[in-house]
């Protein structure tokens, strides 16, 4: 699971959960692999992200490197910055671990890079 996906996932569909975001991450196996860099793609993706959630997620799994805590003003033209975002968004992969609902503590396992977000019948 990439951190871009994590940025979108929520447990709000669970019974009794109102926001369910962001999900906590307990990672036991994190891999980094190279992905082609497309600065235009990253620049257009950034406004769609919850930046604080991305920052905290990267920090929580020790993949922050030197990503700034706040978005730079002119980031569209800052190749170095876009590259760092690219790395965090697409090159970091959580292979095994779990996601945690911030309200109920319900854990969603991640196996083989696949988060299992299925809910039991009594949870919806």
């Amino acid at each position: 699971m990439k951190l871009l996906t994590h940025n979108m996932l929520t447990s709000k569909c669970m019974k009794g959960v109102s926001v369910g975001y962001p999900l906590g991450i307990n990672a036991s196996d994190v891999r980094v692999s190279e992905v082609d860099f497309n600065p235009d793609f990253i620049a257009r993706m950034i406004p769609k992200l919850d930046w604080a959630v991305l920052y905290n997620a990267a920090e929580s799994i020790g993949q922050l490197e030197d990503l700034p805590k706040d978005l730079a003003n002119n980031y569209e033209n800052d190749q170095e910055f876009l590259k760092k975002v690219h790395h965090v968004l697409l090159e970091v992969d959580i292979i095994n671990g779990e996601l945690v609902c911030p309200e109920t503590g319900r854990k969603f396992p991640i196996n083989n890079g696949i988060p299992n977000m299925l809910l039991n019948e009594d949870e919806v």
Partner: peptide, 12 residues
């Protein structure tokens, strides 16, 4: 990908 149900999609 992730595993999920179309009746309660776990996305924002």
């Amino acid at each position: 990908v992730f595993t999920g149900n179309c009746l309660s999609v776990p996305l924002r």
